[in-house]
Amino acid sequence: MLKALQLEPEKCTGCLQCEMACSFENEGVFNPSKSRIKVFTFHDEGRFAPYTCSQCAEAWCLHACPVEAIVINPATGAKDVHADVCVGCKVCTIACPFGTVNYNADSGKVIKCDLCGGSPACATACPTGAITYVDAEHTGYERMRAHAAQSLPHS
């Protein structure tokens, strides 16, 4: 069974350990600005929300890519960016309606969550259990995907 990242914003304290873990795993640097997962802060409400790619079934980014640089990893179900193929055209960054594919000007390529190949560093690093990697069906994740599908029916 495929696993998915379960995000529970109500448990998040905004410490950004996930962002550091992500950038360290993927770039070898502690650098939140290069993280594939981002914590959004709602200061006035005292809320924090970690958010990243839900590996949505529609795979808007994958279909929009003109050079097949984004492919499904059969082991994880993640949509992986193959940096050696990506030309940096950024079409996927505007195609992803969730805003979770970002352009990295330093590398000239796009970056997105690939579930770290099946062992997401963010989930390991999260000190409060706000990010966990669990069986996809046991999460609110399916609801999240359903919501995504509902709010954005395939044109």
């Binding site: 304290t13 410490c15 950004l16 550091m20 409400e45």
Partner: peptide, 19 residues
């Protein structure tokens, strides 16, 4: 108290967010 909030990299998160 609305929530506790962390500083950068803090796994304690003692900060108070209040209304």
């Amino acid at each position: 108290l609305v929530t506790n909030g962390a500083c950068f990299g803090c796994t304690i998160a003692c900060g108070r967010i209040s209304t």
